[in-house]
Structures are given as C-alpha cells and as structure tokens.
C-alpha cells in the first residue's frame, strides 16, 4: 500500500499510471474464452466537482468530475461491459455542497451513468431530509442493506441491493454503511439504526448468489478498510463472510495501489479496493469470467485523475 504522499510523489513524477505488466501471452490466449466485465469505481468524492487548486499542498491539480467522466467514457468505448459504482460520501467538502446541497454532484453522477452508489456518513450532513430531498436528482439507486430506515423519510427509498443483467451475466450489488454513532450527530441521523454488516452480508449473499444465481457479488461499503479499535471494517467483513467477490470500499480515504486480498470463511480470496478520496483516482478491476469452466480472473489498475488524461 502506498501512503498518499508516495502516491502523489509518484503521479507528480510519472503523470498517468501506465500498466506495464501486460497479461502474459498464454493467459491472453486463454482470455478469449473468457468474458470480461470492467468494474470502475470511486469513493468519498466529497463534492470535488472541480479539480483541487494547483496550489493545494497535498492534492494540487488532481481530480475533477469532468475528467472522471472523460475517463469513464473512454473506457466505455473500449470495453463491452462496463459498470460504474461509488462507495459513498459524495456530499460535503466544497462550496458546491454548501450552496446546492448535493444537487450538482447527483446530477453530474447521473450523467456519468453510475450503476449504483451507497450512503456514507457525510450524506447525513444535512440530516435525513438532506438525503431524501436530493434523491430526485439521481437516476441510479443508493444501496444500503444495514441501516433500518423504518419511520424515517428514507423508508422504501433506499434498496438493499440491485441485480444487473448484462449480456450473459448477472451481477449482484449491495450496500453497507458505517455505524453512525460517533460520526453523525444524533439530530442528523434520527431513528436510523445500524444492523450488523456480517449478518446482513449473509442474507445478501443468500439472495444474490443462491436465489438469483449472480455470477459476481459486489459490496459497496462505507465501513472503512481497517479499524484499529476493533469496529466493523472491510477486512473483517471479508474474513467473516462468504460469497462476496469484491468489496468496493470508502470512508477511510485509503489509496490502494492494488486491491487488498483477504481470505473469506471458505478460504476464497475477496478483493477489497479503495481509491483515496475526492476523485483523485478512478479504480478499475477487470473480471474475466469463464462460465463453462467456472473460473474467474481479475486484474486491476489505479487510474490517476489529472490533467494528462488521454
């Protein structure tokens, strides 16, 4: 894992990341029998619609929704099957949120054709009604399976999961949020209660994998990658569950050079990825799935979002 200083030093020097480790020839020969699903993802965009000002001490010149959009459009042209997800905390961080309350972010993300997002703790910065009032600007769902929204304005508005059928494939996606205690003031979270993400994941996998035979199960998580204090986090979730292929994470603003790989209850690898924050990078994971031989391969790329986009 790079720390963010190293990452920034590296992009300062190298500009755009280039994947030099091309898939070996024998693998590319085999690849033709495989079908490819390209998963793109962001997290913790924090209203960074425009890039950071060039003089920013840490992230000068990085990010920007128009660049992410251009990058996603380019990849959509190159690949047949592209999915785009976000792992929460779209809200808060620039005057766009202070003045327009999420409308600008949601409208732009809808134009970028996200398939699904989830709810981060900062989505509650204007209270529950601050989310409810902005949903009309979205053309994709925010997923959450572990908040009990009953008796709140959001009841019935936030699906637990989404099933996406693309070509021969069925992809199941569900959302998990962080325990709001200690992150959101009581008045802003109302009567929402937190449900154990491990139990919920078991239920989601039953629905998505067992009942709906999804080929790929993806969790959009705002739990955070790791937690020193023993609270729920992506790494523990991966260890304590089964059936999830990929956790797209957020909350801790962790910039992973390559996804974490954690063994689940069945001893299978779960990929966990997170790409910093504020749209300084776009995550890309390509799955190669052979339904006949029941194999899955994955490769990843961390794409810097800067002025040298091609």
């Amino acid at each position: 894992m790079w720390n963010r200083r190293d990452f920034l030093k590296n992009i300062g020097v190298a500009g755009l990341f280039l994947g030099t480790g091309i898939i070996p020839k024998r693998a590319s020969a085999a690849k033709k029998e495989l079908q490819k699903i390209t998963v793109l993802h962001t997290n913790d965009l924090h209203s960074r619609i425009e890039p950071f000002p060039k003089g920013d001490p840490e992230f000068g010149g990085l990010g920007g929704f128009a660049r992410i959009h251009a990058l996603v459009q380019k990849i959509r042209k190159e690949e047949e099957l592209v999915l785009l997800f976000d792992a929460g905390d779209v809200f808060q961080g620039t005057p766009y949120f202070n003045f327009f309350k999420g409308e600008a972010e949601f409208k732009l993300m809808s134009k970028m054709r996200y398939d699904a997002g989830t709810i981060g703790n900062h989505e509650f910065d204007n209270g529950i009604e601050g989310i409810a009032s902005q949903l009309k600007h979205l053309n994709f769902p925010l997923l959450n399976a572990n908040y009990d929204f009953s008796e709140t304005e959001l009841y019935g508005q936030i699906p637990a999961y989404k099933i996406i059928d693309k070509e021969d494939f069925r992809i199941g996606v569900f959302g998990l949020g962080v325990n709001l205690d200690g992150y959101v003031e009581p008045k802003n979270r109302g009567s929402i209660s937190y449900v154990d993400p491990v139990d919920v994941t078991g239920k989601m996998v039953r629905i998505l994998k067992d009942e709906n035979t999804c080929d790929l199960v993806i969790c959009l998580s705002h739990l955070g990658l790791k937690n020193d204090l023993g609270f729920d986090c992506d790494v523990n979730l991966a260890r304590k569950t089964r059936g999830v292929d990929l956790i797209i994470g957020g909350h801790t603003h962790t910039l992973l050079e390559t996804p974490e790989r954690v063994l689940n209850l069945d001893g299978e690898e779960v990929l966990i990825n997170q790409v910093g924050w504020a749209g300084i990078a776009l995550g890309r994971i390509d799955f190669y799935i052979d339904k006949k031989n029941k194999t899955k391969l994955a490769s990843s790329k961390l794409l810097s979002v800067n002025e040298e986009l091609v």
Binding site: A14, T20, I22, T295, A298, S299
Partner: peptide
C-alpha cells in the same frame, strides 16, 4: 470456490515508475 469449481485469479498490472522530471 463454491462447488469446488470457480476460481478467482488476480493478475497484477504493475505501475510504471518512470523517472521523468516533475511536471507539476
């Protein structure tokens, strides 16, 4: 994987660390 059959492989694409001079 489930049914002892599905496998996940992870192919790492290495990032280039080209040593060109700083552009920023």
């Amino acid at each position: 994987y489930f049914n002892n059959s599905i496998r996940i492989l992870f192919l790492l694409l290495i990032f280039s660390g080209c040593s060109v001079s700083s552009k920023i």
